[in-house]
Design a protein around this nucleic acid. Sequence first.
DNA 1: GCCAACGTTGGC
DNA 2: GCCAACGTTGGC
Length: 137
Amino acid sequence: MNHWLVKSEPFKYSWDQLVKDKKTFWNGVRNYQASNNLKAMKNGDRVFFYHSNEGLEIVGICEVVKEYYPDHTDESGRFGMVDVAPVMPLKKPVTLAEIKQTPELEDIALIRQSRLSVMPITAPQWKKICAMGGVKG
DNA sequence: GCCAACGTTGGC
DNA sequence: GCCAACGTTGGC
């Protein structure tokens, strides 16, 4: 199983909204690197949900429930999306500030490639963040 | 195929 | 609201 992290601005689409919706399609990605990461996602992969701009913290874990398919909101036809469903919230959100202070997480794509909105997370990074968030990965 | 201009993201 | 990082576009 692979692990990922997706960013969303909470005033556009928040974790609470995802919990309310039970499931959503992750549309709107218009960046090839992010899109390639979406393409590599498999059903059952676990995904951290990060709030950008406001919050600046990882708030929950969701899961891929439908693999890459065309994004109907993309007029160019170049990009796709996946469906995700919430699994559980973190008991304690893990903030960007904490991540930056954690030596084991200094190579995380969230910091190294701050503008990327869909990124892979390594197994050790996943375990570490779960531990910080008070949940079992 | 290079590179300057431009647009967008996202932390501060 | 500013600005750094960086991806994309378009002229040559």
